[in-house]
Amino acid sequence: MVRDVTLGQYLPGNSLIHRMDARAKIVLLISFIVMIFCAFNFVSLALTAAVTILIVISSGIPLKMYLKSLKVIIFIVVITSVLNLFYGTGDPLWQWGFLKITWSGISRAIFVTIRIICLILATSALTFTTSPTNLTDALERLMKPLKVFHIKVHEIAMMMTIALRFIPTLLEETDKIMQAQKARGADMDSGNIIQRIKALIPVLIPLFVSSFRRAYELAMAMECRCYQGGEGRTKMKVLHMSAIDYIMIALMAVVLAGVIFCNIFFWELV
């Protein structure tokens, strides 16, 4: 079912990472992604993986939830690693026609797999431990300098909040409409691509219509609750950078430097 998506789900808690400032977490995630792609050899990759494990453990979120979010992209992981497997150069260990597996292919496959897994785990750790409002609030604050270019930062953040709120509602609604059309004999599970796309029309049109209705009603509800845009708004949960956040950012800088150092020092291990 479409409902089993864990992406973007927030799981309240009181772990170290839960307590960190959302802005710090976003900055850390960005530098972590940089780090993942800076890890060129096995030593730096091992370091990255170790950091990932630390993040997962200190988030206090059950491993089960991480596995669930990995499940969604397992297909992509398998495809890319298999492709990389055959992409290596050097002496083939095994060959069948033009397909050959080499040591470098194997190492590339392992590299890519670990990188994607680290990326997904770290991103999940952010969404699991940060409430959507805090997340969009942090983005709003981080993007504030863009106001100079007349970018409507508050509106973008508000749109993201609402989108996150309505994703589960709309997924559920899609499910319902599909069932209702199936009950009228709509055939969605067979036929070629064109037939299948055509079969989606009876689902998409009601979904659009109801989204517009929801948008209209939500706008009215927001007006009833005195929403007048970002001016003069306060926040219940004020973002606050504490010592932990600065320490973490400092640590991340050290680790990132470490990764780059490993790349240079163990360059022959690629």
């Binding site: 209702a180 004999g185 109801s210």
Partner: peptide
């Protein structure tokens, strides 16, 4: 599903055709 017809809750949210006539004929057409 043609023999056992099912009307869901708030069925008006499944209307999609240009005319009422076309919408009612969706089932029979299928």
């Amino acid at each position: 599903r043609f023999q056992v017809g099912m009307v869901f809750q708030y069925p008006e949210y499944q209307l999609f055709e240009e005319t009422v006539y076309k919408d009612i004929s969706f089932g029979p057409k299928n």
